[in-house]
Design a protein around this nucleic acid. Structure first.
Lengths: 228, 228
DNA sequence: CGCGGCTTTGATGTTCATCAAGTAAAGTGG
DNA sequence: CCACTTTACTTGATGAACATCAAAGCCGCG
């Protein structure tokens, strides 16, 4: 058999392997490269030409765009095994969003033409990628619609649960986003993010220590997220 | 050569042909079926199992979902040559949205397994579909984000321009949506949709006659859409 | 003809953004 | 390492934007 790169749990590899020939796998592995990003560093910049397929191996990133009014809007938070450059890779020539690391991150990079070639010569593999693509988009759209129909308290509750549940699997966690970024994510002002966090703290629903959040009353928070 | 079904301008066919063998094309054509829907009729119902690939041949439809609070939210308006069931087809087992005709419509229906088989055995075709998928999702996400950052006047202006420009290519058109549906599309209340339409009428930006809208001052409307 | 849904307008109050001002924290250059 | 600047955070006060409630006219449809 083969070493198949050194990334043992890479979902991307999991998707590709089984569809590829030995030689394809070898070129796949030799072709890929990894890059490290510290928290805050730019991984992809809006407007950049799309020449590579970027995959998040570890860490946490935010996808965001400069809206028409110049204000930034966060489109999604991506965690490992999310395909970072899945959104427009196959339709656009240039990125219409930026990606920055909000925690130290490692990305795995493959030449886009190479990927296109592999997909182009392997329909079943394509189906898997499409499935993933479809799911990622569905989630983003669903989130945007869910958030939209909530009032501010509900949105904050939603995002706190999102981090506790989906990202950190822990009731205590460090917010990877500034208050301002949270505002950009759920469509409200920084001041109100702070205000409502303070409110939750006073109501003993959460404890706050700078960026560290502890969810003290998960049930109540969930009720607010669902109802508000 | 071949008759290639009777749909001469079908984009779907355009995508498929060139990638398919003669025999594939024949089965493609013989396999497909068409359905007619009158305005208001349900084409796809949320929760339904996805067994078919639905393509809009003529007419106009709305994609919408029942939000968490029970309120309906319109996700997108699809016009011919948009793939109606592109959103979740390759990731979900059941539709998480509904589709109804907002104008008399004709859909073209292909068995999903059949499509999957064709795609699975033809990577280049898959790339084309992915491109389309990617573009559709990008548009929906972009629209949601654009709308979100506007105030109500801007949203109404946006949707009026959208219909005039993207759907009807005419400054005079019949609104295919009720006031309530417009509200569901751009995230506001029915009353405010009406109020702002009236306001635009009083300001002589538009003329209203029931569902018929005439854009009288396109430039001003555009300014409101961009700024507000 | 009457019922229900769609449309319209007005009045009211809530929610939220904006403005202002101050504190804390974090990065920067000497 | 400290003064300095900048950026993030916080709270309060104010007004604007918006949802909600209420009432009435309209239209299509059984």
């Amino acid at each position: 058999m083969n070493v198949l790169c050194n990334c043992e749990k890479c979902e991307l590899k999991g998707i590709f392997i089984g569809h590829l020939t030995e030689t394809d796998i070898e070129s796949f592995c030799s072709q890929k490269s990894e890059r490290q990003f510290s928290k805050g560093e730019i991984i992809i910049e809006q407007g950049m030409e799309i020449t590579e397929f970027t995959y998040l191996k570890s860490g946490l990133v935010k996808l965001f765009r400069k809206g028409e009014g110049g204000k930034e809007q966060i489109i999604a938070i991506a965690k490992p095994f999310d395909f970072v450059s899945l959104l427009s890779v196959f339709s656009e020539k240039n990125y219409n969003y930026s990606v920055t690391a909000i925690e130290d991150s490692t990305t795995c990079i493959l030449d886009l033409l190479f990927i296109r070639n592999i997909i182009g010569s392997n329909g079943n593999l394509a189906l898997n990628i499409m499935e993933k693509m479809s799911r990622v988009s569905d989630n983003i759209i669903g989130n945007l619609l869910n958030i939209r129909q909530k009032q501010l308290r509900g949105r904050i509750a939603f995002i706190l649960i999102y981090f506790a549940d989906k990202i950190y699997s822990n009731l205590i966690f460090d917010l990877p986003l500034s208050r301002k970024e949270i505002a950009e994510y759920i469509g409200m002002t920084t001041e109100n993010v702070i205000r409502i966090l303070s409110e939750f703290r006073q109501d003993k629903i959460i404890k706050i220590n700078g960026k560290t959040i502890e969810i003290a009353d998960f049930e109540r928070l969930k009720a607010i997220a669902n109802f508000g």
